Amino acid sequence: MKYKHVLFLIQAAVIAAIYAVLTLVLMPFSYGVMQVRISEALTILPYFTPAAIPGLFVGCLLANIIGPYGILDIVFGSLTTLIAAVGSYFFRKYPLLVPLPPVVANGVIIGLLLHYAFGVPVAIWACMLWVGFGEFISCYVLGLPLMRLLKKYEYIFK
């Protein structure tokens, strides 16, 4: 029984570390209105393991603590990733929909945050669409092929 808890913690920690490192190493692409956080491709991982939910949240939290946008991004950006990860977990029976919750959650919440809190001088719908489009690239263009690749190694998540 203890083995399952240890495995869960290790998986969550590894996912958090990979998410944070990818986000920070690719910082120019990871923040802003037209952001393509390559690390968001990892939001497909709840398809394989529930440990990805806290892993993604903590990884995003770490990246946002170090990132340039401060407390609002730390709180709301990280919570958005948590919402997205939970949504992806609930869609795990429908693999093509697993990347959808991060696209919608980030498009709406981060779009609102950029427009209202950070005063990005474009229409609210444009902020939402740009963030959503960047998220679509991360989650569908990169994440879905990653999910197909990881299916071959699904046993490592068990």
Score class of each variant (00 low, 15 high):
F8S: 00
I110A: 02
K4C: 01
F90E: 10
L100Y: 07
F76D: 06
E135Q: 14
I124G: 01
T80Y: 04
Y116R: 07
L100K: 08
A51G: 03
Y94R: 15
W130H: 03
A16N: 05
Y94V: 15
I71S: 14
G119F: 10
L72V: 13
F90D: 00
L113S: 07
V6W: 09
A63N: 02
A20F: 04
L100M: 13
Y89W: 15
P145M: 11
L7I: 14
M128R: 03
F133A: 15
P121W: 11
L61R: 00
I137P: 01
K2P: 00
Y153I: 11
V108F: 13
A41E: 01
V33D: 01
F76N: 04
I74F: 02
A123P: 04
A63H: 01
G107I: 07
T49N: 12
G119Y: 11
F91K: 11
Y31D: 03
N64W: 00
L150V: 04
Y153V: 12
P121F: 11
A84W: 06
L56Y: 06
G55T: 00
R92V: 07
L129S: 11
V14R: 07
A105I: 05
P95E: 11
I71E: 12
A105S: 14
S78N: 03
P54Y: 05
A16S: 13
P102A: 08
G55M: 02
I66V: 15
L97N: 06
V86I: 15
L22P: 04
P50A: 13
Y140P: 03
P46C: 08
V6P: 04
N64P: 07
I74T: 10
K158A: 14
H115K: 15
I66L: 12
K4T: 13
I53H: 10
T23R: 00
L72I: 12
C60F: 01
I124C: 13
L42T: 01
E135G: 08
M128T: 09
V122R: 12
F91G: 05
Y31H: 07
A52R: 02
L56D: 02
P50L: 12
K2F: 14
V103M: 15
R37I: 00
W130M: 14
P121M: 11
I18Q: 06
I53R: 10
I124S: 09
I66D: 00
V103H: 09
V131Q: 03
H115V: 11
I109T: 09
A123T: 10
Y47K: 09
I71C: 06
Y19V: 03
M34V: 14
G77H: 02
M147S: 09
C127K: 07
G119M: 11
L113G: 05
I83E: 08
P99T: 03
Q35P: 04
S78M: 04
A16F: 01
P145C: 11
F8Y: 14
A85W: 00
I156L: 15
A16G: 12
N64V: 01
W125R: 09
W125S: 14
G107R: 06
K93S: 14
V104R: 10
V86D: 06
F91D: 05
I110L: 06
Y155Q: 14
A85C: 05
Y31E: 05
N106S: 08
S138P: 05
V108G: 02
L114T: 10
Y140T: 02
M147Y: 07
T80K: 02
I71W: 14
I74G: 05
G111C: 05
N64D: 12
L61G: 09
I65G: 06
G70P: 05
G59S: 03
P101C: 07
